[in-house]
Simulated assay, not measured.
Amino acid sequence: MMTIDEALRLIAGTMILISLYLAVTLSLNWLWFTGFIALNLIQSAFTQWCPMITLLKKFGLKQNH
């Protein structure tokens, strides 16, 4: 079973690739979403809190130990 850390990296990477694709094909405004993802990752490094981790825990994923 996938852990929270693995799922978080998978989701963040996927969302970044999707937003870059949308920026190239539809509108450069999608880069704001890419920036939001980056800022969320940066703030979670300092605060030790990430909304996606909270959600993944509710879905039953386990932490690495």
Results as ranks from 00 to 15, higher is better:
7 A>R: 04
16 I>L: 14
13 G>D: 03
36 F>W: 02
13 G>Y: 00
3 T>D: 07
63 Q>T: 08
38 A>Q: 00
17 L>W: 03
46 F>W: 12
55 L>I: 15
20 L>K: 13
50 C>W: 00
59 F>K: 04
4 I>L: 08
54 T>P: 01
28 L>T: 02
15 M>W: 09
60 G>P: 06
31 L>V: 09
25 T>S: 12
65 H>V: 02
4 I>F: 04
1 M>I: 09
38 A>P: 01
15 M>L: 15
26 L>H: 11
55 L>D: 11
43 Q>F: 07
23 A>S: 15
24 V>T: 05
32 W>F: 13
51 P>F: 05
45 A>H: 05
22 L>I: 04
61 L>P: 11
20 L>F: 13
52 M>N: 06
7 A>L: 07
23 A>T: 03
13 G>P: 01
54 T>W: 11
57 K>P: 06
14 T>D: 03
1 M>S: 14
51 P>Y: 04
60 G>C: 06
39 L>Q: 08
30 W>I: 01
14 T>M: 12
27 S>A: 10
32 W>P: 00
53 I>G: 04
28 L>G: 11
60 G>H: 05
27 S>I: 00
32 W>L: 12
5 D>G: 10
10 L>N: 05
57 K>G: 11
51 P>H: 05
33 F>M: 12
11 I>Y: 03
7 A>P: 04
40 N>P: 00
47 T>S: 15
26 L>K: 13
16 I>M: 12
48 Q>D: 05
29 N>K: 14
20 L>T: 02
20 L>Q: 08
39 L>F: 14
8 L>I: 12
65 H>K: 11
35 G>Q: 06
64 N>C: 08
16 I>T: 08
56 L>S: 15
50 C>M: 00
24 V>I: 10
33 F>R: 07
49 W>I: 08
5 D>Q: 11
10 L>Y: 07
52 M>P: 02
52 M>T: 12
33 F>S: 12
44 S>W: 04
40 N>I: 09
49 W>Y: 13
37 I>E: 03
13 G>F: 00
64 N>V: 10
50 C>E: 04
7 A>C: 12
57 K>Y: 08
46 F>S: 06
12 A>Q: 03
51 P>G: 14
1 M>Y: 07
25 T>E: 11
29 N>F: 14
5 D>R: 03
11 I>W: 02
7 A>Q: 09
25 T>Q: 10
25 T>A: 13
57 K>V: 07
4 I>D: 01
55 L>H: 13
27 S>T: 07
40 N>R: 00
9 R>Q: 14
28 L>V: 02
32 W>D: 05
23 A>M: 06
30 W>K: 09
44 S>R: 02
2 M>I: 15
